[in-house]
Design a protein around this nucleic acid. Structure first.
Lengths: 211, 211
DNA sequence: TCATGCTCGATAGTGTAACTATCGATAGTT
DNA sequence: AACTATCGATAGTTACACTATCGAGCATGA
């Protein structure tokens, strides 16, 4: 129905596309050429567009993430894993470089912070890869994990888990985890940008105020 | 030359493509069909690939960022701006929604943290957009900026500026800003993932260790 | 010296992702 | 019955990031 289009703001051809790709479940068929869509479909479309437009996920990845949200009895840790895995470039994990300097730095930071994390955490490889990239570029002043990064990440993660703890409904938790992980990265990045400007002003105070 | 390809690991056709697109300056012509490339070209290629592959920038955006790095006398704040603007989806700024709830939350957070930031900071709109998205999804428990996010962002930004302060060479600073901004987002995101798992374990301690 | 083989720049083609448009068969509406 | 709208299937489009081909020009070795 085109009412669904109207209610959600998503063009009809795109809705059809998402139906084809399995992101959106089809509604209840009332006759051979009529299908009824509910409010849940409108919400689902909003979620889809949020993951794709704001979160920047490719359509296929969004599909995988939504499938995880839909599975009612997956453990929370697994949902976290899917969300995290989804936003790391999936093919990142094909180029399996063994232990590198970056890996060592990550391990050392985890140790120093007293974190308990499994070896499979996608963040490990992601962080190691970036540190290795810094090193390959010869940017040694960046090829480390500053204390501020680790502490900042922990503060942010505590806030994340606090948001998850506001509900006890499993389905709700799953959605908060997915949305909060996918869009949260962007929020953190934006705040980092704002804080950078502030700190930069603080350090390199403008000439007038310096004299 | 294909020595450049060998030295950098980038296939010849791609090098040609980057030359065409202006990401890579052409070398010194020694005859009508011979061009000499230097070590600087190899480093430039590494930088290009880092921005594209690891940082996830589109080629055109990488070009704009590199142009900013190449301009020797742009103020640091401008370089920050370019780097930040580059990784926010550029067309984000076309859909100019006026003041929204998200904008108010961002302003309020900036106030509360005592940050001094211009109105044009790209992070403002980026953060506001995400908060608005949370609200539209009905995820009210996420549609706020927790204290932990703001404090975490400031810690991270301080570490960022500390890295910039390791040099006084303007060109070097520009490159640190760009690389640190573009790749740093990924590093922060990865650390967030790691910390999330740790905090999650801490809160929902597994049954065995709880007894 | 001149054939072979590399280089250069220009142009055109490929593959993928995300839509978008068209079509024919219905099915409710007037 | 005529008209309009819907459904699913298939095909086409656009943008991006390469990738392949081509013709001309040296450049070196038999």
């Amino acid at each position: 129905m085109s009412q669904l289009c109207e209610a959600s703001g998503v063009p009809v051809p795109s809705i059809k596309y998402y139906l084809r790709e399995g992101l959106l479940p089809s509604g209840e068929r009332t006759s051979a050429n009529q299908v009824d869509y509910s409010d849940a479909h409108v919400e689902r479309l909003h979620l889809i567009r949020a993951l794709i437009d704001v979160g920047g996920l490719p359509v296929a990845t969004a599909g995988r993430v939504l499938a995880a949200v839909d599975s009612p009895d997956l453990p929370l840790s697994y949902i976290f894993g899917v969300a995290q895995y989804a936003i790391s470039d999936a093919d990142l994990y094909d180029e399996l470089e063994g232990p590198s300097d970056g890996t060592a730095i990550v391990d050392e930071t985890i140790e120093r912070m007293g974190w308990k994390v499994t070896d499979e955490n996608p963040g490990r490889r992601g962080a190691a890869r970036i540190l290795d990239t810094y090193a390959r570029l010869g940017r040694d002043e960046l090829a480390a994990i500053p204390e501020g990064y680790a502490k900042g990440a922990e503060l942010i993660a505590r806030a994340d888990l606090a948001a998850v703890a506001t509900t006890s409904d499993v389905r709700d938790m799953a959605e908060i985890v997915v949305v909060g992980t996918v869009l949260g990265d962007g929020l953190v990045a934006s705040l980092r940008r704002i804080a950078q400007e502030h700190v930069s002003n603080e350090m390199f105070a403008n000439p007038r105020s310096e004299s």
